[in-house]
Amino acid sequence: MALLELDNISLDFPVLQTKARGNHPGLQSNAVGGQLADGGAGYLRVRALDGLSLRLEPGDRLALLGHNGAGKSTLLRVMAKLYAPTEGHIVVEGRVAPLLNLSFGLDMEATGYDNIFIRGLFLGMSRAEIRRKIDSIAEFSELGEFLDLPMRTYSSGMRARLAFAVSTHVDTDILLLDEVVATGDAAFLRKANEQLEGFMMQSKIMVLASHSNSVLRDLCNKALLLEHGRAKAFGSVDEVIQIYKTSSDVKAK
């Protein structure tokens, strides 16, 4: 049973090694970022998420929208249990696969095959499981003989292919994606999207943060618009995209 439930989540980031300069403009005047506040003890606090509540059940595919620094990636990291919320409760049931940073877990000096193992182990697969899937991963990446070369000889697109190939071979209940489909060439993008769709079918819940409205429309059935870490709108993808467009148009003027 997959379930993801947030109950009134807030997250404060301490920004150590900074000085609060007294008078804090902070708050809503910034176009980007969360809300700044004096954290006491002389450093700043950024309230990255503010009072979010949410319940996702099997079949839910949530799109996250918002300007830079609105809290999309932070929210994904809270869902992945990487960041513990300052306030509020989170319940996550099921195996979570975060795909937040495609270059993570890649060792530039190791070969492609070694990197499949490193990244796979980090994602919670066992060696036996990786060995079982390695042919399928290698084939999907289309890297062929390059898999025997050290990673530093790869282009960034090739690295993304490998990382993506490994990540989408994890059996998962809840899939968290952060702007991943933005890299790679057109042919691979198409293939990645197909794979993503297949992957989504298997995983029961998905959350995707992206600035590409067409990707969000294709893949998601619910949407959440974040602004300064608060939920500004929640509903169907088209509705929320519309609200987002209007609000950013207003800002642009």
């Binding site: 990291r77 992945a80 990487l82 979570v96 975060p98 937040l100 940073n101 877990g105 980090f122």
Partner: peptide
């Protein structure tokens, strides 16, 4: 640091 921010192990 990068691992702790990316992967829940």
């Amino acid at each position: 640091a990068s691992a702790i921010r990316e992967i829940p192990v």
